[in-house]
Computed example of a mutant assay.
Amino acid sequence: MSESEPAPQIGQYVHILRGRDAGQINVIVGIVDEKFVLIADGDKRKYDRAKKKNINHLELFQYISPEVKRSIDETGRVTNGKLRFAVSKFLNDQAITLEKGEQIDG
């Protein structure tokens, strides 16, 4: 990660670039240190078994889920249902954006 890249934030959407889950969209549910984050999607990867992932293997989107961020800030955790909802909402919003001819920028 270079100096110009923003630091990952809790609730931020990521696109997995490397590993078994490559191609999937997940949400950051924890930050381990400046190099690693914890990600989950509430479906294949539950909150209780979040995946520790190197941020160099992720594409960070500029979008942050306010529901996930608020839940983690208030209670220290988030439900898997809320994670699934956030990921599906993000994917639906991106599909609408792409239909309008705009591009996704991460």
Rank of each mutant, 00 (worst) to 15 (best):
L60T: 09
Y13S: 12
V37M: 02
V37Y: 02
R77P: 00
A40H: 03
F61T: 07
K89W: 07
E5W: 02
A22L: 03
K69N: 10
K52G: 14
G30T: 09
L60W: 06
K69I: 04
G11Q: 03
F36Y: 08
D93S: 12
N92M: 15
Q103G: 11
Q62H: 13
A22P: 02
S4I: 03
V87M: 03
E74F: 08
D41Q: 03
D48M: 06
G101W: 07
Y13H: 14
T97E: 14
A40E: 12
R45G: 01
A7P: 00
Q9G: 05
R77I: 02
A22T: 06
M1S: 12
E5C: 04
M1I: 06
F61Y: 13
Q24N: 08
F36V: 09
V78N: 10
G42Y: 08
A40Q: 06
A50D: 12
P6A: 13
Y47D: 11
K69L: 08
S65P: 00
E59D: 15
E67H: 07
M1A: 14
P6T: 13
L98M: 13
A40T: 03
Y47L: 05
V14H: 08
E59L: 10
N26H: 11
G106N: 08
K82H: 02
P6N: 14
N56D: 15
V29K: 01
D48H: 14
F90C: 13
D73W: 00
G76S: 09
Q62G: 15
Q12G: 03
Q12C: 04
K82E: 15
V32T: 09
R84K: 14
L58P: 04
K46F: 10
L17S: 11
Q103M: 04
I16C: 13
V29F: 04
D73A: 09
G81S: 11
I31K: 03
Q94I: 04
R45V: 12
V78A: 11
D21I: 01
M1H: 11
R20N: 08
T79Q: 05
G30K: 02
S71N: 08
G76A: 07
I31W: 05
L98K: 08
T75H: 13
A86T: 05
D73V: 00
S4P: 01
V68R: 01
P6G: 15
G11L: 01
I72G: 05
F85W: 05
L38Y: 10
I25G: 00
T75I: 05
T97D: 14
I55S: 10
K69C: 07
G76N: 10
Q62W: 13
K89L: 14
D41I: 02
E102R: 06
G23W: 07
N26I: 01
D93P: 00
I104S: 03
V27Y: 01
L98N: 04
H15V: 12
R77V: 10
S88Y: 02
I16K: 04
R77H: 11
F36P: 01
G19R: 07
V37F: 09
K52I: 10
H15E: 15
Q24C: 07
V27R: 00
V78C: 13
K44L: 14
G42T: 13
V87R: 01
V27H: 00
K69P: 01
V29T: 13
T75V: 03
K100Y: 12
N26K: 02
Q24H: 08
R77C: 12
V27S: 04
A40S: 13
I10W: 07
D93V: 08
I64R: 04
L58Y: 12
K69A: 14
V32C: 07
Y13P: 02
K44C: 09
Q62Y: 12
